[in-house]
Each structure stands twice: as structure tokens, then as C-alpha cells.
């Protein structure tokens, strides 16, 4: 597997940037010719990860969210969403469906479950007070064979 294309994005953790982030990532991935369904799943997974940065990592402060996307020769997209926020103490607990620390804001605790269900692999690395990196991988179907 080799990387055929790559992009980096960095923006402030304002909630109005959630739409920007998922649109930018899906626009970049569009060159792999995904189906509408696949693109929608990527948009949703990215939206969940970025919302986690806005709601949890930076809480009431504004920090920088970085996204790196790599497209690979085997038609996969690897999306890394990184923040320098509060970090996650207990990753496996945070990834449990319905677990949330923000129920007052009607957060459902479904973020990681959605990421897992809408992509092929989710990997989380985090250090308290340092930040969190979520890596999403999704292999796209090859609809046309390229000669």
C-alpha cells in the first residue's frame, strides 16, 4: 500500500466549522469515486470526531483541530483527526455506546459507535491534558476498473 495523495487541514474548534470540516474531507475523498452512501458515511464519521473535539477536547475554550487525510493505492482513505485538548482518561469507557459526559447538552454517547459503524476501523490514541488523535479508515468500493 502506498499513499497516492494527501491533504492537511487546520481550523479553530468552533461549532460552525463542523460542517466545513466534513465537507472539506468529503470533497477531497471524492476523487476516489466513492458511492453517495460511502461519502455520506465518511461525512458522518468525520462530523462525530470533530464534534468530540469541539464539545469535549476544548470544552469552553477555542483550540486548533487538525485533520490529515491520506488516500492509498488500494482505494482507502485514512483520516486522522487531532486535537491538543483535555484528552481521554479512559478510552474504552469513552467508546462504550451511550457513555457521555455531556448529557445536559443532549449528547447521546453515540459518537464512537457511529464512527465504528460507518467506517472499517477506528483507532484512538489519547493522553490526558495533551490531546487525542482519532484515526478512521475506510476502503471504498471500486465501481469502475481503471485500466
Amino acid at each position: 500500500m502506498t499513499v497516492s495523495n494527501e491533504m492537511n487541514l487546520s481550523f479553530e474548534s468552533r461549532s460552525c466549522n463542523e460542517a466545513f470540516a466534513r465537507s472539506a474531507v468529503s470533497a477531497f475523498i471524492a476523487q476516489l469515486d466513492p458511492t453517495i452512501g460511502e461519502l455520506n458515511e465518511i461525512r458522518t464519521a468525520v462530523s462525530e470526531a470533530v464534534t468530540n473535539c469541539v464539545v469535549h477536547a476544548y470544552r469552553s475554550t477555542i483550540g486548533i483541530i487538525r485533520i490529515n487525510v491520506k488516500l492509498t493505492s488500494d482505494n482507502a482513505a485514512i483520516i486522522r483527526i487531532h486535537d491538543n485538548g483535555v484528552g481521554i482518561e479512559n478510552i474504552s469507557q469513552a467508546m462504550e455506546p451511550l457513555f457521555t459526559t455531556a448529557s445536559a447538552e443532549e449528547r447521546t454517547g453515540l459518537g464512537f459507535a457511529v464512527m465504528q459503524s460507518f467506517t472499517d476501523a477506528v483507532h484512538v490514541r489519547s493522553k490526558p491534558q495533551k490531546g487525542t488523535t482519532v484515526t478512521l479508515k475506510k476502503t471504498l468500493s471500486r465501481r469502475f476498473s481503471h485500466a
Binding site: 462530523s47 464534534t51 447538552e105
Partner: peptide, 11 residues
């Protein structure tokens, strides 16, 4: 488009 925030809205 809707992410899990829509589910929170419904619930």
C-alpha cells in the same frame, strides 16, 4: 445530512 446530534434532538 444528520449525525448523532439529530438523535439527541429527537430523544
Amino acid at each position: 445530512f444528520m449525525d448523532s446530534s439529530g438523535i439527541g434532538l429527537i430523544m
